[in-house]
C-alpha cells in the first residue's frame, strides 16, 4: 500500500520552475531515495511535501488522504532538515519532546503529558544511541550527535511519513558509514515511511528499496 504519494506535483522557486509534474509513491513502511545533482530542486520538493512551501500544481497524498492544502503543523509529515535546525534554547531531551508537547491538537498534547513524554523521549534517544545525553544543551553536540537528535526529534511524534534532507552530508567517512547503518536500522525498526534526499548513489542503494531520479 502506498504511504506517501505525489501526483503531478510542480515546484517553483523564485518564479523558476524546478520540478514539473512529478509523480511517484513511497510504499508504507519503506524508504525511497530521491537522487539528483545539486540545484535540481530536491530540498525545495521536500519543503513542499512537508507543507512549508506550496506546490504550483499537483496533489500530495498521505495514506490515501489529500493533504495538499493541510497546514504544515497538521500534515503529519516530518522533516529532518539538512542543517538539523535544533532549537538552540532547548536541551537535547526538550528538542526531542518538542513535537509531543506542541502537537497540533489539544488531545494529542494532553495524551503526551508527563511520564509518557519522558518515556518516549528516552526510547528515541536510546534508539539513536544518546540515552545519557538528554540534559545536554544542543550547542555542545558533535555533528553526528546533532544529526541523531534531529532524527529522534523527527521520529518522536510518529509522523505518517518522514522526509530526510541529505541526513549524512558533512560527516567524516567513518561517522558517515556508522550513521548510515544506524539510520537504515532505525527506519526499519520503527517501520517509518521515509523519503531520503541524497546525491550519493551508494547511500541511496544502502538505505532505500526504491529510487526516484531528478534532473
Amino acid at each position: 500500500m502506498i504511504g506517501l504519494e505525489l501526483d503531478a506535483v510542480s515546484v517553483a522557486h523564485d518564479e523558476r520552475t524546478l520540478i514539473h509534474h512529478l509523480s511517484f509513491g513511497v510504499e508504507r513502511g519503506s524508504t525511497t531515495a530521491l537522487l539528483g545533482p545539486s540545484g535540481v530542486g530536491k530540498s525545495s520538493l521536500l519543503r513542499v511535501i512537508a507543507g512549508i512551501d506550496r506546490p504550483t500544481s499537483g496533489r500530495i497524498l498521505l495514506d490515501g488522504a489529500d493533504v495538499t492544502d493541510a497546514p504544515v503543523h497538521r500534515r503529519r509529515i516530518g522533516l529532518v532538515f539538512q542543517d538539523n535546525q535544533l532549537f538552540p534554547h532547548l536541551s537535547v531531551a526538550d528538542n526531542v519532546a518538542y513535537g509531543l508537547r506542541n502537537a497540533a491538537t489539544r488531545e494529542a498534547r494532553r495524551s503526551w503529558r508527563g511520564a509518557r513524554t519522558r518515556e518516549r523521549v528516552h526510547e528515541l534517544l536510546s534508539i539513536v544511541g544518546l540515552a545519557d545525553r538528554g540534559d545536554d544543551p544542543v550547542g555542545i553536540l558533535s555533528g553526528g550527535e546533532a544529526k541523531r537528535v534531529a532524527l529522534a526529534r523527527g521520529l518522536a511524534p510518529t509522523p505518517g511519513a518522514l522526509l530526510l534532507d541529505e541526513p549524512l552530508t558533512g560527516l567524516d567517512r567513518a561517522l558517515h558509514d556508522r550513521l548510515m547503518e544506524d539510520l537504515a536500522s532505525i527506519l526499519r525498526t520503527t517501520g517509518t515511511t521515509a523519503l531520503i534526499v541524497t546525491h550519493d548513489e551508494s547511500e541511496a542503494r544502502f538505505l532505500a528499496s526504491a529510487t526516484v531520479r531528478l534532473g
Binding site: 503543523h73 535546525q85 532549537f87 506542541n102 497540533a104 494529542a108
Partner: peptide
C-alpha cells in the same frame, strides 16, 4: 533567527502562535 527554525517547529505540529511562543520568543528573550 533562521526562518527554518520556525518551520521546523511548525513541521513538528506547532501552530503559528505556539511556534512564536516556544521558539521565537525564547530566542528573542
Amino acid at each position: 533567527i533562521d526562518p527554518m527554525l520556525v518551520a521546523a517547529a511548525r513541521n513538528l505540529g506547532a501552530s503559528r502562535s505556539r511556534a512564536f511562543v516556544s521558539v521565537t520568543l525564547p530566542l528573542l528573550k
